[in-house]
Design a protein around this nucleic acid. Structure first.
Lengths: 160, 160
DNA sequence: TATTGTTATACTCTATAACTATA
DNA sequence: TATAGTTATAGAGTATAACAATA
């Protein structure tokens, strides 16, 4: 795949950074399109995107304290209060005081919450943009983005 | 770190959608990291992310009417007013009434605006996440995301 | 003293609707 | 009537700082 694109003479790195720039811009454009599609699906579930993502990050089989949810969402603790308020009003999550440490409240996904969470997961795990890729291309893509995400945040990409 | 069940040959179509789900989630995670890095750089230029992206979309060699900028940013016309206000206050852009149609205002990037725009472009065209990819991997990645973006929005991906 | 969840508050970003001045 | 830009306004999302309860 290495052509000799001699754009500026004597700049072997020029091609790489051009390639990188194009790849980055396209990744961001793709992510923006995917995000819009996801938000459309999520809105139809009666949730706002941020609330849906909070539900998505909750593990139905392992209740989390609110602080940990904030860490997973990479946002401040103070935001979690309102997000969980709305999940609780919708009957999707319950707050329970942790008897071991009464400061903490663990977030328990209800039965209804599990059902909705599956729908959220589905909305966040598909994209029409992949339809044109062959199985092999999809496999290559996955390998490449895995390599990238390992570099970005090892502990996060290793989780789950 | 759990070992992922890797089914290579003879996998039914369950594998494709699993692969797709993993790829999508990683792409979104990568885009989120890139966005955060970009916003850090952009903030150091004294701009907010949305203002910087407006400047980025302006073509210094071909002044646009505000309506066209809104289309490129995929947002409502009403937002452009405040964005251009801030660019104009910073001396990076000038509004000029189009003599041919006095309703329109064309947005002209100033000399100072060109300089800042180059910095914005640089911030938006690089990422540390690509550092671990070989030249060939980067080239493959570019080809794959190009194929994806062609499917998403042909006329946009052809632009620039 | 330190930490958890909460509240109050402010800023950014974006959308809708109504206004104005042109066409 | 229709369009370009603007204004007013509202809502979502996120951050900082201060507070009460608990450790």
């Amino acid at each position: 795949m290495a052509h000799r694109t001699i754009r500026r003479a004597g700049s072997p790195k020029g091609n790489r950074s051009e390639l990188a720039g194009d790849a980055i811009r396209r990744i961001m454009q793709i992510a923006s399109t995917i995000r819009q599609d996801q938000d459309t699906d999520i809105t139809q579930l009666g949730l706002t995107p941020a609330v849906a993502r909070a539900l998505y990050e909750l593990d139905p089989d392992r209740p989390l304290p609110a602080r940990e949810l904030a860490e997973q969402l990479r946002c401040d603790r103070s935001n979690v209060t309102a997000l969980v308020d709305r999940l609780e009003q919708a009957g999707l999550v319950e707050r329970r005081i942790d008897p071991a440490d009464r400061r903490q409240k663990t977030l328990v996904v209800t039965t209804a919450g599990r059902r909705v969470r599956v729908r959220v997961q589905q909305a966040m795990s598909k994209s029409r943009l992949l339809a044109g890729l062959s199985d092999e291309e999809l496999s290559d893509l996955r390998a490449l983005v895995t390599k990238m995400s390992d570099r970005g945040c090892p502990e996060v990409s290793a989780a789950e």
